[in-house]
Design a protein around this nucleic acid. Structure first.
Lengths: 216, 216
DNA sequence: CGCCGATGTGAACGCTGTGTTACAGATTCC
DNA sequence: GGAATCTGTAACACAGCGTTCACATCGGCG
């Protein structure tokens, strides 16, 4: 039961509370660090303390949650609760001073939620299967070799079907939030994806002229 | 912003905290009662206090959540937090004594979650449906292919029906504020739109001579 | 009834957006 | 260190679409 903690210098109250709940806290310096230190069994959750730079902490929380699919619990000082109003990017929060029983229950709820998500690591659309655990793709039973970017793009589409996404949105979600590439990049990858999907299924990705692309 | 409260005799602390957060608390005696008293705009959330009979309260919470799709916040005494361990059937919980800021944030998160689920991206007018998420148009169930500008114009009309718009206003709103094209452009697009709406429905767009057009 | 401005209609032109290909830098693998 | 693969960008061609024009039709008004 490993829990990633950000920032790297957690309060001792948090550390001891986690230990007494049966979790092993592992401080991480950023998202990439969390990826490197990820234990075999994966993170049960991530705990992010909102300190001097709430904006940065929330950004880290959001990346952990959305890119790495790690449930995030935010710790916030009771006098700064309103910092969280209208803010998204985390799954739950806890006020200081930390109540150990409350921490136990909240972390337990998060872990269960993430476990039930992991239950089936296979994304499906018609006869397409995307195994997010092995990064393999099968199409009507036949395996297809996709490159990393092709896979990421296809996963995005399968996870968010039946609506139009602009090139900018796709760049932000599939590439990176602060990626500044030309939007034609998306076109080319869509074309490569269509080619690998085959003539029959290439129409799964519809071009919506002067708007973007739609899957499904 | 109505909130259903169970059981029917809430603590005064809870009631006043809800009021100061801008919610209107409505005590309900059971699930059927919650259904009867449901306001026009629907429940923002339900708040369930865990009192003498936690099992019953949790059962009510689960029914509200699963059958009525109302987000449920459970209030539990700080000395009985462990009652919640491993228990499901609610969306979030809050410990007593109630911290008003915390209540505001937790209720806000619940309401947003339920709103984003309900958010309907479909504009309707009679048997016309404009799906703003997929950029698809259906007319009596049949999908119609509209070009980008046709779609934008139709959306403008559906969003602003029952009043006359001059060609200049339409150009400014649908094209661009600083667009300086001939106003006949609007005529042509209106014509194409009428053609695609079909003979029957083409009269939805009325020409108001020497003024402009009206939809609906 | 006849004139004139406003609008409907159809066609043509030119531009923007997209598909497609090619290529160069980056990265990985031997 | 070289080969092979992956990825981003540029260039080109084409199709779709928006705009404009020309002409037909309508509707009000004297």
């Amino acid at each position: 039961m490993y829990v990633a903690i950000y920032p790297q210098t957690p309060s001792s109250a948090l550390t001891s509370a986690l230990l007494s709940c049966g979790y092993k806290p592992v401080p991480v310096s950023d998202v990439a660090d969390a990826e490197r230190r990820e234990p075999e069994a994966g993170w049960s959750a991530a705990v992010v303390e909102l300190g001097d730079d709430p904006g940065l902490s929330i950004a880290v929380a959001r990346k952990l949650r959305e890119d790495r699919a790690i449930p995030v619990l935010v710790i916030v000082d009771r006098t700064h609760t309103s910092d969280l109003e209208g803010v998204s990017g985390f799954d739950d929060f806890l006020l200081t001073p930390i109540d150990t029983s409350e921490l136990r229950v909240r972390l337990g709820r998060l872990s269960i939620a993430s476990l039930s998500d992991e239950a089936d690591p296979v994304l499906r659309y018609r006869d397409l299967e995307l195994n997010t655990a092995t990064y393999q793709v099968t199409l009507g039973g036949d395996t297809r070799d996709l490159t990393f970017m092709e896979y990421e793009l296809l996963r995005f589409f399968v996870e968010h079907p039946n609506r139009v996404w602009s090139r900018e949105q796709i760049l932000a979600k599939v590439w990176d939030y602060d990626y500044f590439g030309g939007s034609r990049t998306v076109d080319v990858h869509v074309r490569r994806l269509r080619a690998k999907l085959g003539e029959e299924r290439s129409s799964w990705i519809t071009t919506v002229r002067s708007v973007g692309y739609r899957f499904g």
